[in-house]
Design a binder for these strands. Structure first.
Length: 210
DNA sequence: CGTTCGATGCACT
DNA sequence: GTGCATCGAACGT
């Protein structure tokens, strides 16, 4: 048990949190807090947008071609990070879910910054950027928190990259199709905090935020 | 508001 | 050689 920036008790989510059906994990990750500690400094944000990628039968999941060198972490133990390079430019971070051997994960797509917004602006290289834009988008949040390929396979229940429960009040959730993919769009496996200005891309009703 | 497009690296066929 | 789970600037309306 630690003291969170909000003054409420918080604890790191255990591996068991991730060891269950991915859609449940995705819904429950909204409102939790992603934390990276670097040189004793925390940068963190409340998760407000995620997407589920579930099994070899999901054409948009990296496990669709079966086990490969890259997607190995998806087959590994739940509660570990899967970090990979996308479009040759952006690192994206996932939390591996379900039992070991079943490839599935939740992609973290947006945060509401909580701690270390100054460091986030420095890492983004955008001194004047509004707080709600600092971690909006999966490639942006990894830059803002300093997450990179060294975090691939990292244990999210212990270490420098973790997800915490700050016991924040529940958020109104909305499920939409996943975005940025060309296959598997039939599933509504993107879960957002419908009231958040930090969510990337389209949302049910137009709001400020991009 | 909207759409288009270039940058960029690597896994996979 | 092809195709991305992206971003942001540039341009059209």
């Amino acid at each position: 048990m630690t003291r969170s920036s909000t003054g409420l008790h918080s604890e790191t989510l255990p591996s068991s949190f991730y060891d269950r059906p991915t859609l449940g994990v995705a819904a429950d990750l909204v409102g939790k807090v992603l934390v990276h500690t670097f040189r004793g400094r925390r940068t963190s944000g409340v998760i407000v947008e995620v997407e589920a990628y579930i099994g070899e039968s999901d054409p948009a999941c990296h496990a669709a071609p079966g086990p490969t060198n890259r997607n190995q972490p998806l087959y590994g133990p739940p509660g570990h990070a899967y970090v990979y390079l996308n479009y040759g430019l952006h690192y994206l971070v996932n939390a591996v879910t379900e039992r070991e051997g079943f490839p599935a994960a939740v992609l973290i797509r947006a945060l509401e910054p909580l701690e270390g917004t100054d460091a986030m602006r420095r890492r983004r290289g955008r001194p004047g950027l509004a707080a709600h834009m600092l971690c909006s988008g999966p490639g942006n949040l990894t830059v803002a928190l300093g997450i990179g390929p060294r975090h691939n396979r990292a244990d999210l229940s212990a270490g420098r990259l973790t997800i915490e429960d700050h016991h924040r009040p529940p958020r109104p959730l909305a499920w939409t199709p996943r975005i940025g993919i060309r296959v598997g769009t039939v599933h509504r496996w993107r879960c957002i905090a419908a009231d958040s200005p930090a969510v990337s891309g389209p949302r049910p009703s137009g709001r400020p935020g991009r």
